Simulated scan of single mutants.
Amino acid sequence: MAGPQKSMSVSEAAALCGVGRTTVGYWIRSKKLHASRVGRNYTIPVEDLLFFLKTSGQEIPAELLAESCNGPIFKSYQNCWQYWNGSDHGQRCHGCIAFKNQLQACFTVKDSGLLGCSDCHTCRYYIETFLHRIQFVHQIELPAAVFKDLYLWGGNSSCAEICSVQQNELVGMGIERIVHADSLPKVIEAIRKLALGAPQVKEDCIIWIKNDRESPKKIRVSVYLLREPANALLVLGVPLIFK
């Protein structure tokens, strides 16, 4: 390829992978490879072709390897109703609050009672589209979580422990359920600074965390703006223990 491509046709994908157009068509029809329909033709995002080849154990062409040299390979973002389109699950999507409000991160409204599904942490769509992007938090020993637009995308077991919740409950949880009311203005101000270009919130940021089982906990946090997921934030916490 002459330069970085964001998408390609079925014919281009077939030629690149050394297979026939019917094979690529089968990958698409069987929902193994994501593609968007444009008129009578399909357009395949390069990142989705990369993800499919990698996860199915197939050889990745040298031309595509150049596309993935900057980091791990993820599927492109799809809205949940696009992901489930054509499946039995997808028949419920048009009555769902995520579809009606065109939400990208449907799991952030799981507590509304209006979401067309449940158990977001085990949902195939959440796992393939979002969880893969934040798996790194489970390699961090400190309490760590990723959040965007004031909702958590997930966190590690240390984060769940300090918040006194089950780890799966962190998925889609609003920060107002975690951060004490006295500390919310400070957190929102930190998010505003990051949005304006500050590289991080330094470790002298101290906030109070809610805890239903005990009194609120005081922690020192650092917050970092992530490149991927775009505009998401990584927060690391260190509990402050006073004797």
Rank of each mutant, 00 (worst) to 15 (best):
Q5Y: 08
Q5C: 08
M8W: 00
V10Y: 01
C17A: 12
G20Y: 04
R21A: 11
T23Y: 03
W27L: 06
K31D: 08
H34Y: 14
P45Q: 06
V46M: 04
E47A: 12
D48E: 07
D48I: 00
L49S: 02
L50F: 01
F51Q: 05
F52K: 08
E59R: 14
P61W: 03
P61C: 05
N70Y: 14
G71H: 05
P72I: 01
I73N: 06
F74M: 00
K75H: 11
N79A: 11
H89G: 00
Q91K: 15
R92W: 07
C96Y: 03
A98M: 00
L103Y: 01
A105F: 08
C106D: 03
F107N: 01
D111L: 12
L114S: 12
C117K: 09
S118D: 15
T122F: 07
R124H: 14
Y125Q: 01
E128L: 10
T129C: 12
T129D: 07
T129I: 15
H132F: 12
H138F: 11
P143S: 06
A144C: 08
A145T: 10
W153S: 05
S158L: 07
A160T: 03
V165W: 04
V165K: 06
N168L: 10
N168P: 08
E169I: 00
V171S: 02
V171G: 04
D182G: 03
L184P: 00
A195H: 14
E203R: 15
D204W: 13
I207Q: 07
I209S: 00
R213G: 13
K217M: 10
L226I: 04
E228P: 02
L234P: 05
L236N: 05
G237F: 06
F242P: 01
F242Q: 13
K243N: 13
